[in-house]
């Protein structure tokens, strides 16, 4: 027992920090999502009152009903899920071959290749997304190039479209796809592949019956690492999307900063969290397993 008592002093500081600053805030967000908007600071009412010993419940589900009534919110959720899912798929199709190529390289240059993968993400995310504005604009570099070599006569509208969002998400999150897949592939026992080849399996067969199945946990980790944050992405739809590109992160931002409607913003967050709960739970299991921790 004294063992546990001593350990408690190691466990408590990070545990308490995460409970107070990561778990407890969700209680607050849930509370405010049930409150009414008020013209005050902070701009929300109470969800219960306690006057002269009498408890009165004031909260309501009105904010959630409001989200259902106005189709802009439902569309935002669906559109976010769609854009995030397609971007994740594209990132997987680009990232997997890259991870495979690096994993099969001689050990001496692998770490340099990984450095090349990570390097761009050490510069500011905001600036990297901003860079695409200049490239995708109507009078931007890509249109300029295409027109000067005569492929097109009129600029293609790329900025402020869904295409720009796909480019932004794939560009911003590609390293998060490559790294877990690489970590998985590099540990793969090459003797299995040799054995399959010796038995006459063709490259495609080797890939689909050995390499791919054995790298599934890396694929899942990568996909969740790209998919979950990009559902709630704000910077990409704000800078690259158009005024009618609905993504839930941007809708929440506008509800909070532009409309100053904290309760509705909280309700949006609660629903987003409910949608992402299952993917986050699965991701947690995969990640802990990858780290070799029982959870």
């Amino acid at each position: 027992m004294s063992f546990l008592r001593r350990r408690i002093w190691v466990i408590l500081p990070p545990y308490l920090w995460l409970l107070i600053f990561f778990a407890l805030p969700f209680a607050f967000i849930l509370k405010i999502s049930l409150a009414e908007t008020a013209v005050a600071m902070p701009p929300y009412g109470d969800i219960w009152s306690w006057t002269s010993g009498k408890f009165e419940w004031l909260g309501s589900l009105d904010n959630f009903r409001f989200l259902l009534d106005d189709e802009i919110y439902v569309l935002s959720y669906l559109n976010s899920l769609k854009l995030a899912a397609i971007s994740t798929l594209i990132a997987l199709l680009i990232g997997y071959p890259m991870a495979l190529a690096i994993a099969r390289m001689p050990e001496s240059i692998r770490s340099f290749m990984l450095l090349l993968v990570i390097l761009p993400s050490w510069t500011s995310f905001l600036i990297r997304i901003y860079a695409w504005i200049g490239l995708l604009k109507n009078n931007g570099l890509i249109n300029h190039l295409l027109m000067s070599i005569g492929v097109i006569d009129e600029p293609i509208v790329m900025l402020h479209t869904n295409f720009a969002i796909y480019v932004g998400i794939v560009y911003g999150y590609l390293p998060f796809m490559i790294l877990p897949i690489y970590a998985n592939l590099v540990k793969l026992d090459l003797r299995l592949i040799e054995a399959a080849q010796d038995l006459g399996a063709r490259p495609a067969r080797v890939f689909f019956s050995i390499t791919l199945p054995l790298s599934l946990s890396g694929i899942f980790a990568g996909c969740f690492l790209v998919f979950i944050p990009s559902v709630g992405e704000f910077i990409i739809p704000d800078l690259l999307g158009g005024p009618d590109t609905l993504m839930i992160g941007k809708t929440l931002w506008q509800e909070f900063f532009t409309n100053r409607d904290w309760p509705v913003a909280s309700a949006i967050a609660v629903v987003m969290l409910a949608i992402l709960m299952v993917p986050i739970y699965i991701y947690r299991r995969i990640e802990l397993k990858r780290l070799g921790i029982e959870g």
């Binding site: 466990i11 990070p14 545990y15 995460l18 409970l19 600053f21 990561f22 778990a23 407890l24 805030p25 969700f26 607050f28 967000i29 509370k31 405010i32 969740f224 690492l225 979950i228 944050p229 559902v231 709630g232 992405e233 704000f234 992160g249 929440l252 931002w253 909070f256 904290w262 913003a265 909280s266 967050a269 987003m272 969290l273 992402l276 993917p279 986050i280 991701y283 947690r284 990640e287 802990l288 921790i293 959870g295």
Partner: peptide
Amino acid sequence: QTIFSGLTVAPLVMPDVITGLSLLLL
């Protein structure tokens, strides 16, 4: 321990808008 491991891993994927808004409300 289950809650603890969840608390340490979940912030990796939590969308920024949720983390930001919930901390502000806290």
